[in-house]
Design a protein around this nucleic acid. Structure first.
Length: 270
DNA sequence: ATGGTAGACGCTCTA
């Protein structure tokens, strides 16, 4: 089973690239972030034409996540377990942002895999209320992941974590040192998830670092390969034991009208 | 000295 995460930075602007990627790489499960669309405007039928089932958790203009499952390969529609972590955004009265969607995925005759799609708050500027919100969100995430762990279901948490875990996960420590993505508190919160027992799939198979998943649109970052690793796939012990391969679909970042993120995938033994 | 680009939205915010 191939599972993948892709921050598409706007479904409206990215639909052609997304369809292309799905057709070319055919993940069984695709977690999307930054759809920047309300549920009603998400072009589900366009993806259903490709054989995918679609579950959307969106909001107006910003954020928003979605999970796709490959119906053509025999997977059932994502079965919703939970949407949202029950935490309000950083501005008074705005309510919760659409950043968390948890489902069960299975074939009709098979066991379920718990899939969690996250778009973790960016947290810039640091310090400030947005950074506080990021850390609070990470606390909530850890608590929820603890509950999933306790349920002993095979589980994967995939998405844009907005955390650069180690110094060799960025082209330049100096350029990023004051950024919320690599503050010690952000890293410590991410490290706690790993200390809890979750496996960072990409890091495990590329322990020397130097693998990027994001390149800024600005300052020629892609052309200079000025990237960093912020999109992660975390696996429960059972899925970590079944891990066969991981990768970044880097080439898709270089296409016309590309997202600023590249897709990240992991294949698991069936 | 605080750039540079992109997306959604609506005259600005987020990343």
């Amino acid at each position: 089973m191939k599972i993948a995460t892709f921050n598409i930075n706007g479904i409206k602007a990215r639909l052609p690239r997304l369809k292309e990627w799905l057709a070319e790489t055919r993940p069984a499960v695709a977690c999307l972030q930054e759809i920047k669309s309300v549920d009603e405007n998400f072009p589900a039928s366009e993806l259903e034409e490709l054989g995918y089932h679609v579950l959307v958790h969106g909001q107006k203009a910003f954020n928003g996540v979605a999970i796709l499952t490959d119906g053509e390969a025999g997977y059932e529609p994502p079965k919703e377990v939970q949407r949202g972590l029950g935490i309000d955004g950083p501005k008074d009265g705005e309510g919760e942002q659409a950043r968390y969607l948890e489902v069960d995925v299975a074939k009709s005759d098979g066991a379920a895999t718990r899939i969690v799609c996250i778009y973790l708050p960016n947290g810039n500027p640091h310090p400030g209320p947005k950074f506080d919100y990021k850390l609070a969100w990470m606390d909530r995430l850890r608590a929820r992941m603890g509950a999933i762990w306790a349920a002993e279901v095979p589980a994967a948490v995939l998405g844009d974590f907005n955390v650069i875990p180690e110094d060799d996960d960025t082209f330049s420590v100096k350029a990023m040192v004051s950024d919320a993505l690599m503050q010690p508190e952000s890293r410590a919160a991410y490290a706690r998830l790993l200390a809890d027992g979750w496996t960072d799939a990409l890091r495990t198979l590329n322990p020397r670092g130097g693998v990027w998943t994001y390149w800024d649109y600005q300052a020629g970052a892609w052309q200079r390969d000025h990237g960093f690793r912020i999109d992660h796939v975390l696996l429960s012990p059972e899925l970590a034991d079944r891990l066969l391969a991981v990768g970044v679909d880097r080439e898709h970042r270089g296409r016309e009208k590309a997202s600023d993120h590249a897709p990240v995938w992991a294949t698991l033994k069936d």
